[in-house]
Design a protein around this nucleic acid. Structure first.
Lengths: 269, 269
DNA sequence: TGCGGTGTTCAGCCTGACGGGACGGGCCAT
DNA sequence: ATGGCCCGTCCCGTCAGGCTGAACACCGCA
C-alpha cells in the first residue's frame, strides 16, 4: 500500500551556497510534523533526526516562543502551533491561483463523480493543496497536506511536463525513481518518453503507477506571470476508469485547468 | 481605521531559557510575511528586522532550500513557499476542533445573516482561522490569516475568559492595551471586570472597542482534553446589532460553540 | 555616466550554538 | 519498595561555524 511521504532527513535539495545549520535543523524539526505523525516527543525527534536531545530541546524552545510549535502541558509532547496555520493561510491567500479554485474543483467532481485533487510542487514532491472526494462507495482519498512522488503520479508528471527539462530531471533524480508498483517508471529515460507525450497531448496519465487498481488523469495549470505551476487530477478505481472513459475525463480535466488559469489571470488586477 | 496586525519585531514573548538566535532570526523572517505584506525584497527585510543584508541573505537561502520561502526568478523578491501551506494543513487537520467546524460556522452565518469568525490564540493575539462573511451589503470582513489584539475584540476577550487569570494577564500585558477606539479598555483592571462578567454569562461583547460602528458577540470553545482554546463570534454594524438583538445572538453563538465542542469530543476516538 | 537601488559573495573574528553528561520525575514490572 | 527505563530539563566548556562589513555586479533612471 503506497503511503504519502513523511519527511525524510536524507533527501534535501541543495541550491548551492552555504546554509545556516541551526536553522536547517529547526526546519527539519518543523518538517517532521506530518499528517501521519503530527505529534512528537523530544526524544523521538532526537532519534529521528539523529541529533542530541539537548540540541533539539534548544531548537524546540525557540520554535515555541513563536508559537510555531506547542508543547502539551501535561503529556509534554510537541505538535505544530497556530503560527504554522497562519503561514499556510498567508501563502494560500497570497497565491492567486489557489485563492478561488475550490468551486472549479467541486464542479469537476460533480461532473465526473470521481475524486479531484490539486497539487503544487513542494520540495521535489507534489503537495496536495485542495481536494474534493468522490461520493462513490469505492473512491480514492483526497487528503490535503500529503506529499507524493513526482515520477509515479499523474499530478507529478503533469507538473514535470510543464517544467524546463533540465529542472525536471534534477528534481526527479534528487528524489530518485523507486518502483512504487510494478508499473512505475524507474528510469529517467522511460519517464522522459512519457513526459514528451504528455506535453503534446496536454494531459498526464497514471495507469496503476502509484497504487494498484488506481488510475488518474491530470493536467497542468500554469500561471504565466510568476512561474508557479500546479496541476489538477481526476482519480478513481480502474473498474470505473476504462480506456475510453479516460479520454473523456482527460478532456474535462484539461478544460477545467484552462478555466482556472483564465480566472487567475482575471484576478491579477 | 483599525488594521490587522503585522509582525512587530519588538514584541516577542519570552518563555524563559535561552534561544537559538539564528533560528529566532529565521522565524522573524517567516513571521514578516503577512496578508498585508506577502512579498519582501531582501533589503526591505534587512531594514525591517534591523539585520545586515548578508545575514538575511544566508537565512533566506536556508529557508529556500526547504521551500519555506521562494524567490521569484525575475523580480528577485521573496514570498512564502508551499512548505508554509503544508505546515498549515498539517496543523489544521491534526487539530480536532478545527477539522470539521466549517459547517457549523456556515449554519450560524445563515441563521444570523452576519459575519462569523473563528479565532485561536497565536503569539498573544487572536488569529482568525476560519470565517464566513455575511451576505449583507454592509458587513464586516472575515479575513482568515489576520491577527487582532486580545483586549479589544470579542474573540480575544472570550478566549481570555477561559484562561487562568494570571496567564491571561501576562498575555495582555506583554502586548499592551492600546486604545484602538475611544471605547477600548486600556487598563487591566477594567478589562478584568469585563472578563469576570464574561465568565458568568458565558459570552463576550465588543461594543465598538475595536472599530467604530462595529459590534460583536463571541463565545469560547474549549477542548477539555488538551487545553486548546478557540472562540467564535458574530459581528456586524451597530445599526443591525441593537441591544436586544445582541442578547439573541449571544444565545446562538453560545449554542454553536457548545455543539462544536460536542462534535470535537465525539471525533476523539 | 553617474547614482541609488537591488541581490550576491567572501573571509576573518569571536560569539554563541552544540552536545556530553548529570539530574529529576513518571511509569511499569519486577 | 526497588529498580529499570523512558521521559524532559539543565548546565557549562569547547571550538565550529554564524555573523558581519566591505566589495562587487547588476539594473533602471536621470
Amino acid at each position: 500500500m503506497p503511503q504519502p511521504l513523511q519527511h525524510d532527513p536524507r533527501s534535501v535539495p541543495l541550491n548551492g551556497g552555504p546554509e545556516v545549520s541551526s536553522v536547517r535543523k529547526a526546519l527539519e524539526i518543523l518538517a517532521s510534523f506530518s499528517l501521519e505523525r503530527p505529534v512528537w516527543t523530544l526524544s523521538a525527534l532526537s532519534r529521528h533526526l539523529d541529533l542530541p536531545k539537548s540540541t533539539v530541546h534548544n531548537l524546540l524552545r525557540t520554535l515555541q516562543t513563536f508559537d510555531f510549535v506547542r508543547q502539551d502541558p501535561e503529556a509534554r509532547n510537541y505538535r505544530l502551533g497556530p503560527r504554522a496555520l497562519e503561514m499556510g493561510l498567508v501563502f494560500a491567500r497570497s497565491t492567486e491561483m489557489l485563492a478561488g479554485v475550490r468551486p472549479f474543483l467541486r464542479r469537476l467532481a460533480e461532473h465526473t463523480g470521481e475524486t479531484i485533487k490539486m497539487g503544487i510542487l513542494s520540495n521535489d514532491r507534489v503537495l496536495i493543496v485542495a481536494a474534493v472526494e468522490s461520493a462513490h462507495q469505492l473512491h480514492t482519498r483526497g487528503d490535503t497536506g500529503t506529499r507524493w512522488p513526482l515520477h509515479s503520479t499523474s499530478l507529478g508528471k503533469a507538473i514535470l511536463s510543464a517544467l524546463p527539462e533540465d529542472e525536471a530531471r534534477q528534481m526527479v533524480e534528487r528524489y530518485g525513481l523507486p518502483a512504487v508498483t510494478p508499473h512505475t517508471a524507474t528510469s529517467w529515460e522511460s519517464l522522459e518518453r512519457d513526459l514528451r507525450q504528455i506535453r503534446t497531448r496536454g494531459y498526464a496519465l497514471d495507469l496503476e503507477e502509484n497504487e494498484r487498481g488506481v488510475r488518474c488523469v491530470a493536467a497542468p495549470v500554469v500561471d504565466p506571470l510568476r512561474g508557479s505551476i500546479a496541476a489538477i487530477s481526476v482519480s478513481g478505481p480502474k473498474v470505473r476508469l476504462e480506456d475510453d472513459r479516460l479520454v473523456q475525463l482527460a478532456r474535462d480535466v484539461v478544460a477545467a485547468a484552462r478555466s482556472i488559469r483564465a480566472q487567475a489571470q482575471v484576478e491579477e488586477s
